[in-house]
Amino acid sequence: MKTMKLWAVLLLFFPLLCLGQTKKVKITGDFKNIEGDFDKLYLFYKYDGSQFLDSSKLVNGKYSFEFDLEQPVLVRIIVFKAIPGRPGAGISNPDNTLSIYIEPGTMKLVSKGKFSNVEVSGSKSHFEYDKLNSLASVYQSKVMDLMRKGQDKSLSDAEKQSNQAEIRKLQTDLKEEVFGKYIAENPTSPMLFYALQRYAGGSREEMMKVLDMYKKLPADQRDSPEGIAFAKRLQGQLEIMIGSIAPDFAQHTPTGELVALSSTRGKYVLLDFWASWCGPCRKENPHVVRAFNEFKDKGFTVFGVSLDRESGKDNWIKAIADDGLGQWTNVSDLKFWSNEAALKYGVTGIPQNYLIDPDGKIIGKNLRGEELHKTLEKILSK
Results as ranks from 00 to 15, higher is better:
residue 287 H to E: 14
residue 35 E to V: 11
residue 294 E to T: 09
residue 220 D to I: 06
residue 143 V to H: 12
residue 337 W to Y: 14
residue 273 F to S: 04
residue 241 M to A: 09
residue 378 K to W: 03
residue 195 A to S: 13
residue 258 L to G: 08
residue 173 D to K: 07
residue 6 L to M: 15
residue 27 I to K: 06
residue 168 R to V: 10
residue 335 K to Y: 01
residue 268 Y to L: 08
residue 93 N to I: 14
residue 355 L to D: 02
residue 316 W to N: 07
residue 23 K to M: 03
residue 177 E to M: 11
residue 330 N to W: 04
residue 109 L to F: 03
residue 176 E to Y: 05
residue 312 G to M: 14
residue 369 G to Y: 10
residue 286 P to G: 07
residue 93 N to F: 12
residue 113 G to L: 07
residue 118 V to Y: 05
residue 64 S to I: 01
residue 106 T to L: 08
residue 200 A to P: 04
residue 225 P to S: 02
residue 190 P to N: 09
residue 249 F to L: 04
residue 117 N to E: 05
residue 356 I to D: 05
residue 240 I to T: 13
residue 31 F to W: 15
residue 377 E to G: 06
residue 327 Q to L: 10
residue 32 K to C: 14
residue 41 L to Q: 08
residue 1 M to E: 14
residue 222 R to K: 15
residue 7 W to I: 03
residue 14 F to N: 07
residue 121 S to C: 03
residue 77 I to D: 14
residue 15 P to N: 13
residue 317 I to C: 04
residue 363 I to M: 01
residue 317 I to V: 15
residue 115 F to I: 01
residue 342 A to E: 13
residue 123 S to C: 01
residue 92 S to M: 12
residue 286 P to H: 09
residue 304 G to F: 05
residue 16 L to K: 14
residue 213 M to D: 08
residue 66 E to Q: 05
residue 155 L to E: 10
residue 124 K to I: 01
residue 198 R to M: 14
residue 315 N to I: 06
residue 72 P to I: 01
residue 156 S to I: 02
residue 78 I to V: 14
residue 55 S to E: 15
residue 16 L to M: 04
residue 350 I to T: 04
residue 138 V to Y: 05
residue 261 L to N: 05
residue 222 R to M: 03
residue 273 F to A: 11
residue 90 G to F: 02
residue 2 K to L: 12
residue 279 G to P: 00
residue 65 F to V: 15
residue 44 F to Q: 12
residue 334 L to D: 12
residue 291 A to T: 06
residue 255 T to G: 05
residue 252 H to T: 07
residue 206 E to W: 03
residue 105 G to W: 02
residue 339 N to F: 08
residue 368 R to F: 07
residue 368 R to V: 14
residue 34 I to P: 00
residue 68 D to R: 06
residue 49 G to A: 15
residue 91 I to W: 02
residue 336 F to V: 06
residue 291 A to I: 08
residue 148 R to K: 15
residue 239 E to C: 02
residue 312 G to H: 13
residue 97 T to R: 12
residue 182 Y to V: 11
residue 159 E to Y: 04
residue 29 G to L: 02
residue 187 P to T: 04
residue 41 L to P: 10
residue 176 E to A: 02
residue 215 K to P: 02
residue 365 K to I: 10
residue 317 I to Q: 09
residue 109 L to G: 00
residue 195 A to Y: 12
residue 170 L to P: 00
residue 138 V to L: 06
residue 152 D to P: 07
residue 298 K to C: 13
residue 2 K to H: 05
residue 199 Y to K: 11
residue 361 K to D: 05
residue 97 T to H: 00
residue 381 S to K: 05
residue 58 L to Q: 00
residue 133 N to I: 04
residue 73 V to P: 00
residue 355 L to V: 09
residue 217 L to I: 10
residue 92 S to N: 02
residue 322 D to I: 04
residue 321 A to M: 09
residue 184 A to N: 13
residue 206 E to Y: 00
residue 332 S to P: 11
residue 46 K to Y: 09
residue 41 L to N: 09
residue 331 V to Y: 02
residue 108 K to N: 12
residue 98 L to Q: 07
residue 273 F to T: 07
residue 119 E to V: 15
residue 182 Y to W: 14
residue 113 G to P: 00
residue 379 I to G: 01
residue 195 A to T: 04
residue 352 Q to W: 01
residue 18 C to H: 06
residue 80 F to H: 10
residue 85 G to R: 08
residue 15 P to Q: 13
residue 375 T to V: 06
residue 284 E to F: 07
residue 21 Q to G: 09
residue 158 A to I: 10
residue 269 V to W: 05
residue 378 K to F: 12
residue 348 T to I: 14
